[in-house]
């Protein structure tokens, strides 16, 4: 197991689901996003940081707009890697971006730089499991875990392939759709997680559309982790001072982590 994969696996608590908040690097600017990540960090088990990209196919309007604002503010991939470096010592950092940025940098150079910055894992939503062997190899050599995505439409045959190649954790897309949509936590989602469980050994984190601690708790009862992204961006957008809303974000993250504890009947604060 790569160094990054081991660090991520160790960050998933044994007695409750992990909380994986998302911060868009450079939104509203690099310094503010770093401050937000620092505020959330103490209540996060794994921290997901987005590198803004011009054509984010898997993202709904909220993350698209945040990414565009980060790009308009001049954010470059190197800035986000520096952010990751600043966050060493906190929860393991998993970067999220699109495949063209990795290709443009050269996969080997990109992952070596990411590993030096202490990055533990990488999520690339437009790199399905049967594409980009060279990219996966480069990540493995650098000790960065390539976290695959699985969707409700993923066939059992592909789920088995994901099981063989997954590193760190596996990201289960809650619904067919883009980030930030409407999510109904119900039987279909539970069955999807069970289906993934039969094929995949890594922890299973569910994302896309999770907004409230209640939703997170409901999912945390049967999944190993929950990712919250668009909701945090909405909070930043709605804040009177989007550059200094760390305390609000921290309070939300704490409530969410508490809800995950309660979901497995672990007393808060333990």
């Amino acid at each position: 197991m790569s160094d990054g994969a081991a660090r991520i696996a160790a960050a998933f608590p044994a007695d409750r689901a992990a909380f994986i908040p998302y911060v868009m690097g450079g939104f509203p600017d690099v310094a503010a996003s770093l401050a937000h990540a620092r505020a959330i960090g103490p209540h996060a088990d794994v921290l997901e940081i987005g590198i803004p990209y011009s054509d984010p196919l898997a993202d709904g309007p909220t993350i698209q707009a945040a990414g565009q604002r980060a790009l308009d503010a001049g954010t470059r991939p190197g800035d986000v890697l520096e952010m990751a470096e600043e966050l060493r010592g906190g929860p393991p950092v998993v970067l999220m971006t699109y495949v063209n940025l990795l290709m443009a940098a050269g996969p080997r150079a990109f992952f070596e730089r990411a590993a030096r910055a202490g990055v533990a894992g990488m999520i690339v939503p437009d790199l399905p499991i049967d594409e980009g062997d060279d990219i996966r190899d480069a990540a493995a050599r650098a000790g960065v875990a390539m976290v695959p995505l699985a969707a409700p439409t993923t066939t059992d045959r592909r789920m088995a392939m994901i099981g063989r190649r997954a590193a760190g954790f596996t990201y289960l897309v809650s619904v067919a759709g883009v980030t930030g949509g409407e999510l109904e936590v119900g039987e279909a989602l539970r069955r999807f997680v069970e289906r993934a469980r039969r094929a995949v050994d890594t922890p299973l984190a569910v994302g896309f559309g999770i907004r409230t601690p209640e939703q997170a708790a409901a999912i945390g009862a049967f999944a190993d982790g929950v990712v919250v992204a668009s909701q945090l961006i909405r909070m930043i957008e709605a804040s009177p001072d989007p550059r200094a809303c760390g305390p609000e974000l921290a309070a939300y993250a704490e409530r969410l982590q508490d809800a995950l504890r309660a979901a497995r009947n672990v007393p808060p604060g333990s």
Binding site: V99, P125, D130, A150, T155
Partner: peptide
């Protein structure tokens, strides 16, 4: 060429 798209649509492409 190839298929650099979200996993959700892979089944539909197949």
């Amino acid at each position: 060429g190839g298929r650099y798209v979200p996993e959700t649509v892979i089944a539909a492409l197949d």
